[in-house]
Nucleic acid binder design. Structure first.
Length: 967
RNA sequence: GGGGGUGUAGCUUCAUUGGUCAAAGCAGCGGAUUUAUAUCCCGUUUAAAGCGCCAGAUAAGCGGCUGAUGCAGGUUCGACUCCUGCCACCCCUACCA
């Protein structure tokens, strides 16, 4: 066989420019024939120009109220999927990590919506808290306003928060995230605060809340207690000191203790030892020291003891009977067994205990009836308290010394060290490098300080006799954690957490509706809290600060109140983690479109970074379980953290030191690459692990974007004269090649459906990118050019391929639409006969295409054969025997394997090889011979044909083209 | 210090329950096309590499042997996969008093 049969020509097809004049010059005639080709045309630009064009589409969406349209289209949907937004903090520009989180949420929602779910999205913001108050206070101080009252500060904070809500809202929208941006939830809304207090009232009513005095993290510059989530660990250099504590009744004998916080020594009330260790009494010069035997060498080296003599060994029973004199305060202390925390690897084996300044110290003190003595005032200065007689407290020289470090020195530490030196009780002093908790806001080392605070009791006993902690652990098992190790993370967080300190000595937050009597007795009553909620809902929470105590009490006092009468109101606010943790009650339960089906406060999914296992995931769980009886989510999906090209965490400090050339904000990436490329980058990586952001990766993703965009453009450009209603070809009449690509696409769609359902977006990215590059660009699009361009416009073969292209481009736009929100919608608008105005309003129901087994076998063989022949063609090209493939004739020798192939495989193979002629012979082994094609090149289709020149009307055309042009 | 996670070409992502020769795409290199043209097509290198063959030598070629999924071992006929130890990075945690 020398030549593929041309398909039947449709003489009624719209062939343009058939009225040519025979006297035209040869060149003009070529041009003329070019006009008879069905060359691609489209308005879908090759150049994306995302940075400029995305905002236009955004404006269009907003004008047409696209989000609302999607929601109303899905209003009656049987399946509902609610993802509840974790509120970002309303401060600063949107960081690229925050953008990642929002984009992931948007992909989840769009993919659900595309598959027919009603998937609303109500974004939220966390508006209260220290960072804002800190900034606002700074600004006010700069403006000369030194002593603003709480109500004034709060108004300024609200304005500040709202300003950043607006700024961030614009930045989130720019990312292509659709949602109810006009009605977000803000934790500063009256309704929110009221709902939060009502939830709090339920928790109070159930007896979870108590007032206690214990050490909490305290930030000196911020003048407030901090939550665990508000401290961050940084390297720090502390003053490490070895101190001699004189033993009572044994002149010249000392205990050796070690501490890295000398300023806590005035608060020392005991010394802990480990009853399982051995201790030695060591004679050095004239003095005897008690020290852990295991640590003796270390201590001796540090202290520079030239020679020492071990006098005797001591054990716990001896130590328990000793008493020591406080080094510079007029009191004595005892030695207590603290086996759980006294270690044998650093220090002296004796631990200085200050129950007011350390958790373990506190517990030990509690067990032995020691006072929670914390001689530090709100300014972070050493101070006398009423816990001990003044005579037993620190010397006057120490009072008023500031603990806060400036340039690595702390007044209080210096003063304490001075007292020790004067008394010759300082054995050794050195710098100690370690990681130490710092205030997230002021970046200063936090101190542990005991004071009266409100707490939620985590081990509260329920009516069923189970502790709240154990109920929480059980509830965790009823939630799906993705990835599955998340369950361990939150369990260990809940298991090990201390009671929740919920009060903050700040103004910018929800006031704790507590009162105090003149005697200092606290009043916290569920009914009072509920009435306060009503009051706040009506008038806003500023009323708490604007009215007198008696006015407030008049409003909120229960009618049948018989308790004490308050004289002051609480000045504390609730921890911001109570704010955001209440969102299931304040948002999910209250917004009709989000309201859960089983329980009003339950939604389908929370999706945040893995750090939220200790943060929002936990606070939401505890509050919801305590107040509402269940977890607020069914599934918790977690993503990893953003790291830079060196796989190190993107940190603000690195930014400050010039570690990054550009700020790591979402805006900067959007301005350089466009939101769709940023979104494609988010989709490209397995977000459950660390996510690497770097210029290189963004650029790689940008290249993938271009491949995809161009595939769409090619498809659209060949549909300019296609109307699916009129021209679509039925599945069984499609050509084998078209059925092949639709079969491939069906497999792709099925895999993408699965991947979307499993939230494995990187699989979608990978598969779609490969499909566009391999099956489409390199195979299908290349092979069908000939039929699309040269067959008569209305021929069945061309319409068949257009039918396939139409289905491909429609399906691709839908597969891509959750990720490439702008581009998919832009391309969608060029699809003839599209079923919805926007791709985001369409239903993705993969149609698929099932192929016969023999058909599949035939095409597998065809592509395998293509793989075998292409290298031969390349060799011929290298040898300059042919140029392009159409100049070649291929003669194949094929073994018996061709038995059983479906009819017409020879034509199909010639088309796949894109050569002019194909000959086939039978033989024992496969062979491919490449020669120059016979005949002459047809001016129109570029095929080489022997019949060129035999058509009088078109001497330069082949038979197929003569017919197509219309003789 | 404790808990958790990750580690596969320069980059990204795959690889049934342990099973041939570790896959695909991108990037790189070389080439072609100009009827998708700031696109697309074809070929090809690279996963430490070493040894060997061919050759006067170089370039190139061959692929016979060993090796190769962070590193080092182990179990197994056979390991990316299971086990042990280590290293690096990330997250969480910790008052190292």
């Amino acid at each position: 066989m020398a030549r593929v049969q041309t398909p039947p020509i449709n003489h009624h097809a719209g062939v343009r420019n058939t009225n040519r004049t025979p006297v035209l010059s040869r060149e003009a005639q070529v041009m003329d024939y070019k006009n008879t080709l069905n060359l691609p045309q489209t308005g879908f630009p090759m150049k994306a120009d995302l940075v400029a064009r995305e905002p236009e589409r955004l404006a269009k969406w907003e004008q047409s109220r696209l989000y609302e349209a999607i929601q109303s289209r899905r209003a009656g949907a049987k399946d509902v999927f609610v993802l509840h937004d974790g509120p970002p903090f309303a401060n600063g520009d949107v960081h690229v990590g925050t953008a990642l989180n929002k984009i992931l949420k948007d992909i989840v929602i769009k993919s659900k919506s595309l598959r027919g779910f009603r998937a609303p999205y109500v974004p939220g913001w966390d508006c209260h808290g220290l960072p804002i108050e800190f900034k606002v206070s700074q600004e006010m101080r700069k403006a000369g306003d030194e002593a603003a009252d709480p109500a004034t500060i709060r108004k300024a904070c609200e304005a500040y928060a709202r300003r950043y809500v607006d700024l961030q809202r614009d930045q989130f929208r720019r990312l292509g995230v659709l949602g109810d941006w006009g009605r977000p939830y803000l934790t500063l809304d009256r309704e929110y605060e009221a709902a939060e207090l009502r939830l709090f009232a339920d928790i109070v009513e159930r007896g979870f809340v108590y007032r206690g005095r214990k050490p909490v993290y305290w930030s000196i510059p911020c003048r407030t207690a901090l939550a665990e989530a508000e401290v961050e660990y940084q390297d720090h250099v502390s003053q490490s000191v070895y101190v001699k504590f004189p033993i009572v009744g044994q002149p010249g004998m000392f205990l050796l203790i070690w501490t890295t916080t000398p300023w806590t020594l005035p608060a020392n009330l005991a010394v802990a030892y480990n009853s399982s260790f051995f201790y030695s009494a060591v004679l050095v010069g004239q003095e005897t020291y008690l020290v852990s035997t295991m640590l003796l060498d270390q201590v001796a080296k540090k202290a520079g003891w030239e020679g020492y003599q071990i006098l005797r060994s001591l054990d716990g029973s001896v130590l328990a009977s000793l008493e020591y004199q406080h080094p510079f305060c007029g009191r004595t202390g005892r030695l207590l067994a603290g086996d759980s925390f006294v270690t044998n690897d650093t220090g002296t084996g004796f631990v200085h205990c200050a129950p007011g300044h350390g958790m373990e110290d506190y517990h030990l003190g509690l067990a032995h009836g020691l006072p929670v003595y914390s001689p530090v005032d709100d300014e972070g200065r050493l101070a006398l308290t009423s816990d001990l007689p003044v005579a037993q407290q620190m010397p006057a020289e120490l009072v008023g010394k500031s603990i806060l470090e400036k340039h690595g020195k702390s007044e209080a530490n210096e003063a304490v060290l001075h007292e020790l030196r004067v008394r010759q009780l300082l054995l050794h002093q050195e710098n100690y490098h370690h990681s130490y908790p710092h205030c997230w806001r002021s970046k200063t080392p936090v101190i542990f300080r005991a004071m009266d605070q409100w707490f939620i009791r985590v081990d509260h006993l329920g009516a069923d006799g189970a502790t709240f902690r154990s109920r929480a652990l059980a509830e965790i098992d009823r939630v799906a954690w993705i990835p599955d190790w998340g369950v361990n993370r939150i369990k260990s967080a809940v298991q090990s957490r201390p009671d929740w300190c919920i009060s903050r000595q700040r103004s910018w937050g929800v006031p704790i509706p507590a009162f105090y009597t003149a005697a200092g007795e606290a009043i916290l009553d569920a009914r009072v809290v509920r009435r306060t909620a009503d009051l706040f809902e009506k008038h806003g929470s500023n009323i708490w600060y604007e009215r007198t105590v008696s006015e407030l009490w008049e409003w909120v006092r229960p009618a049948d109140w018989t308790g004490p009468v308050p004289s002051t109101r609480s000045g504390d606010t609730l921890d911001v983690w109570i704010d955001s943790g209440s969102s299931s009650a304040a948002v999910i339960a209250r917004r009709p479109e989000l309201r859960g089906r089983e329980q009003p406060f339950q939604c389908d999914m929370y999706l945040e970074g893995s750090d939220q296992h200790r943060g929002w995931f936990q606070s939401s769980l505890l509050l919801s379980l305590a107040g509402q009886g269940g977890a607020p989510y069914r599934t918790v999906l977690t993503h990893g953290f953003m790291v830079d090209a060196d796989r190190e965490k993107i940190s603000k400090s690195k930014q400050g030191q010039g570690g990054y050339q550009k700020p790591q904000t979402a805006e900067r990436y959007v301005k350089e690459y466009g939101a769709d490329v940023l979104r494609l980058w988010v989709a490209s990586q397995d977000f459950r692990n660390d996510i690497v952001v770097s210029e290189e990766r963004l650029q790689k993703v940008g290249e993938t974007y271009r491949v995809i965009r161009n595939a769409l453009r090619y498809q659209l450009s060949n549909l300019y004269d296609f109307d699916p209603a009129k021209h679509a070809v039925a599945d069984e009449s499609l050509t084998g090649l078209d059925r092949w690509i639709l079969g491939e696409f069906a497999a792709l769609e099925a895999e993408c459906v699965r991947a979307y359902d499993a939230c494995e977006y990187h699989v979608v990215y990978q598969r779609v990118a490969q499909f566009a590059a391999v099956q489409l660009s390199s195979m299908y699009h290349d092979a069908v050019k000939d039929r699309l361009y040269t067959d008569p416009a209305g021929s069945v073969r061309r319409r068949s391929t257009q039918t396939a292209l139409h289905r491909l481009v429609s399906g691709l736009c839908q597969v891509l639409s959750p990720v490439l929100v702008f581009t998919a919608d832009e391309a969608w608008e060029f699809i003839p006969g599209r079923p919805a105005a926007s791709v985001h309003l369409s239903d993705w129901t993969p149609r698929g295409l099932v192929r016969r087994e023999s058909e599949v076998r035939t095409w597998d063989w065809l592509f395998a054969t293509r793989e075998r022949v292409l290298p031969e063609l390349e060799k011929a090209r290298q040898a300059k025997r042919i140029g392009k493939a159409l100049e070649a004739k291929v003669v194949l020798t094929l073994p018996a394997e061709v038995e059983g192939l479906e009819a017409g495989w020879e034509d199909a193979l010639r088309e796949l090889l894109n050569v002019s002629q194909l000959g086939v012979g039978r033989g024992d082994a496969f062979a491919a011979e490449i020669t120059s094609a016979e005949g002459t090149k047809c001016e129109r289709c570029w095929h080489w044909e022997t019949e060129v020149g035999t058509h009088p009307a078109h001497p330069t055309l082949c038979g197929r083209c003569s017919a197509a042009v219309g003789a």
